[in-house]
Design a protein around this nucleic acid. Structure first.
Lengths: 130, 130
DNA sequence: TATTTAATTAGGTCAATACTTAATTAAATG
DNA sequence: CATTTAATTAAGTATTGACCTAATTAAATA
C-alpha cells in the first residue's frame, strides 16, 4: 500500500463522502453525482483517484459501474497510523545517529550548552545562521 | 478532532517527514529546515498546519521552539478509519432510507427490474438522464 | 530596558487540484 | 451488428496549496 497516495485520496471532502456513501449503499456513478450534486465527470475522476489508491474496486453490472470499498486498505492505513504513534523518542543518543557530533547533549538548546560543532549540526553553518 | 483537517495535514510528504522526524528527535525549526532542505518559513508554515490540526504541541525552550507529536491524535485518527471499515452495507432497505421509493429492490440495475420512480431516485429525473 | 535571535507572518509566484462541458469509449442489448 | 447508454477521458478554467524572500514579532538575555 502507498500510504501517501491513500492519505491524499482521503484528504478531500467529496471523496470521503463518496467512500461513506459506498460503504453503506451500492450507488452507480450517476446516483453518486445526484447525491453529492456534482457532474458525473467529476465523480468519475474522484472514483479514479480512490481506485488508484486501492480504496475501491469496480464491477460492471449491466450498464452500470458499481464500486465497493476495499476495507482492508482502510484497516491497513489505520495500522500504519498506529505504528507511527508507536515510534519512541530517541533523545539525542549519538549511538543511534552516526552523524551526531556529540557524545552527550544533556540540556541542549539552553544557551551555551552546545559547542559550535553541535550547533552547526542542529542549526546549520554559522554563515547561514545570522 | 476534525478528521478532515487531520487527514489534509498528513496528506503531504513534507509534513509527514516533519512528523516522523519529531517523533524520533527533538528538532527546533531551523534543524527541521536543515534536515528537509526547505526554508524556515516553509517549515514554520507546515508546523502551523500540523499544530492547527492538533497533531503537534509546541513549547518554547530558551530561544527555540520545540514541537511534540500529539500521539493521541494519531491514535484517534486510526480509530476513526477503523470505524469506517466497520460500516456495513445497508443493501437497499427502504426502512433505513425514508426517501427510498421502493419496498424491495431485489436485483436492481438489471434492466427492467426498477420502476420509473426507482430509476429516478437512483439516477435522477428522466429529463436529465439522456 | 535595549539588544539579540528564532520563529512567524506577509506578500508574491508557480504548480497541482477540483471543477466544468464536450467528446469518446466500451459494454449491453435489440 | 447497429444502437443505446453509463462511464470515462479530454480540454480548459478557477481555486487551492506549497514554496520563496523580506518584514515583523516576541521572548530571552546582556
Amino acid at each position: 500500500m502507498n500510504t501517501m497516495q491513500v492519505l491524499k485520496a482521503m484528504a478531500n471532502e467529496t471523496r470521503m463522502e463518496i467512500l461513506t456513501l459506498l460503504l453503506r449503499h451500492n450507488y452507480c456513478v450517476r446516483a453518486l453525482a445526484n447525491e453529492l450534486d456534482f457532474s458525473e465527470a467529476t465523480i468519475s475522476q474522484h472514483l479514479k483517484i480512490l481506485r488508484e489508491a486501492g480504496l475501491l474496486i469496480g464491477e460492471k453490472r449491466g450498464y452500470f459501474m458499481h464500486y465497493d470499498v476495499e476495507k482492508t486498505a482502510l484497516i491497513e492505513l489505520a495500522r500504519e497510523i498506529e505504528a507511527l504513534a508507536g515510534i519512541e523518542r530517541e533523545g539525542c543518543h549519538p549511538k543511534l545517529r552516526s552523524d551526531c557530533p556529540v557524545e552527550l547533549k544533556p540540556s541542549c538548546h539552553k544557551k551555551g550548552t552546545c559547542d559550535e560543532e553541535t550547533i552547526e549540526f542542529c542549526h546549520g553553518k554559522e554563515a547561514d545562521r545570522e
